[in-house]
Lab assay of single mutants.
Amino acid sequence: MEVRTIKVFTTVDNINLHTQVVDMSMTYGQQFGPTYLDGADVTKIKPHNSHEGKTFYVLPNDDTLRVEAFEYYHTTDPSFLGRYMSALNHTKKWKYPQVNGLTSIKWADNNCYLATALLTLQQIELKFNPPALQDAYYRARAGEAANFCALILAYCNKTVGELGDVRETMSYLFQHANLDSCKRVLNVVCKTCGQQQTTLKGVEAVMYMGTLSYEQFKKGVQIPCTCGKQATKYLVQQESPFVMMSAPPAQYELKHGTFTCASEYTGNYQCGHYKHITSKETLYCIDGALLTKSSEYKGPITDVFYKENSYTTTIK
Rank of each mutant, 00 (worst) to 15 (best):
E2G: 15
E2W: 13
E2Q: 12
V3C: 14
V3Q: 11
R4T: 14
R4L: 12
T5F: 09
I6C: 13
V8G: 06
F9H: 14
F9R: 11
F9V: 04
T10K: 11
T10P: 11
T10L: 14
T11G: 08
T11W: 07
V12N: 04
V12S: 04
D13R: 10
I15D: 13
N16K: 12
N16F: 03
H18P: 11
H18R: 11
T19W: 09
V22Y: 04
V22R: 03
D23E: 12
D23Y: 14
M24F: 11
M24Y: 06
S25P: 02
S25N: 13
S25T: 14
M26K: 12
M26T: 15
G29N: 05
Q30P: 06
Q30W: 13
Q31R: 13
G33F: 03
T35L: 07
D38W: 11
G39R: 04
G39I: 06
A40L: 13
A40I: 09
V42D: 02
V42M: 13
V42T: 09
V42W: 13
I45D: 14
K46A: 11
P47R: 04
P47T: 03
H48E: 14
S50C: 13
S50G: 12
E52I: 12
K54A: 14
T55C: 12
F56Q: 02
F56G: 06
V58N: 07
P60T: 05
P60I: 02
N61F: 10
D62T: 12
D62E: 12
T64Y: 11
L65Q: 12
L65V: 10
L65E: 09
R66C: 09
V67C: 14
V67R: 14
V67Q: 13
E68M: 07
E68D: 08
E68R: 07
E71W: 02
E71Y: 04
E71V: 08
Y72G: 07
H74Q: 08
T75L: 00
T75Q: 07
D77W: 06
S79V: 14
F80K: 01
F80M: 05
L81D: 04
G82A: 15
R83H: 04
R83F: 04
R83I: 06
Y84I: 00
Y84H: 07
S86E: 15
S86W: 15
N89D: 09
H90G: 13
T91D: 02
T91R: 06
K93C: 14
W94Q: 00
Q98W: 13
Q98V: 14
V99E: 13
N100D: 08
T103A: 08
I105L: 03
I105T: 06
W107A: 05
A108M: 07
N111F: 09
Y113V: 05
L114S: 08
A115F: 02
A115Q: 13
T116S: 14
T120N: 07
L121K: 03
Q123I: 05
I124K: 01
I124R: 04
I124S: 04
E125H: 05
L126H: 05
L126W: 04
K127W: 03
F128L: 05
N129Q: 15
A132R: 07
A132I: 05
L133P: 00
L133N: 01
A136E: 14
Y138L: 14
Y138Q: 15
R139K: 12
R139L: 11
G143R: 02
N147G: 10
F148P: 05
A150D: 06
A150G: 05
A150F: 04
L151P: 03
L151S: 07
I152C: 08
A154C: 03
Y155W: 02
C156E: 01
C156Y: 00
K158F: 05
V160I: 10
V160L: 06
V160P: 13
E162Y: 00
L163W: 04
V166P: 04
V166W: 00
E168G: 15
S171K: 14
S171Y: 15
Y172C: 13
Y172E: 06
L173E: 06
F174M: 07
F174W: 01
Q175N: 07
H176W: 15
A177G: 02
A177E: 02
A177I: 12
A177M: 12
A177H: 00
N178Y: 06
L179I: 05
L179S: 03
S181F: 10
C182S: 05
K183Q: 12
V185C: 02
V185E: 10
V185G: 05
V185T: 04
L186S: 09
L186E: 15
N187K: 14
N187C: 14
N187G: 08
V188K: 10
C190G: 03
C190N: 04
T192Q: 08
T192Y: 07
C193E: 04
C193M: 04
G194N: 00
Q195G: 06
Q195N: 12
Q196W: 11
Q196P: 00
Q197F: 07
T198F: 15
T198K: 14
T199C: 06
L200V: 10
K201H: 15
G202H: 08
V203H: 13
V203G: 04
A205F: 01
Y208C: 08
M209P: 07
G210Q: 00
G210K: 01
T211N: 07
L212Q: 00
L212F: 00
S213H: 02
Y214G: 02
Q216S: 10
V221N: 05
V221R: 04
I223F: 13
I223S: 12
I223W: 03
I223H: 05
C225I: 02
C225Q: 03
C225F: 00
C227E: 01
C227M: 01
C227Y: 02
K229T: 14
Q230V: 13
A231G: 03
A231C: 09
K233A: 12
Y234M: 09
L235V: 05
L235Q: 01
V236L: 07
Q237Y: 15
Q238W: 00
Q238F: 02
E239I: 11
F242G: 01
M244R: 00
M244K: 07
M245R: 03
M245F: 14
S246A: 01
S246Y: 00
S246G: 08
P248I: 00
P248F: 15
P248Q: 11
P249L: 04
P249F: 06
L254R: 02
T258L: 05
F259D: 06
T260K: 00
T260Y: 03
A262T: 00
E264S: 07
E264V: 13
T266V: 04
G267L: 15
N268F: 02
N268I: 01
N268T: 15
C271A: 14
C271H: 13
C271E: 08
Y274K: 02
Y274F: 10
T278M: 10
S279R: 02
S279A: 10
S279E: 05
K280V: 06
E281S: 04
L283V: 10
L283P: 02
Y284N: 03
Y284S: 06
Y284M: 12
I286D: 02
D287N: 02
A289H: 13
L290V: 14
L291S: 15
T292A: 08
K293P: 09
K293N: 11
S294T: 12
E296P: 11
Y297A: 07
Y297L: 01
K298T: 03
G299Y: 05
G299V: 08
G299C: 00
P300L: 09
I301R: 05
T302G: 01
D303V: 07
F305I: 12
F305M: 05
K307H: 01
K307I: 09
K307N: 14
K307D: 10
E308F: 05
Y311A: 11
T312W: 03
T312L: 13
T313K: 15
T314E: 15
I315D: 15
K316M: 15
K316Y: 15
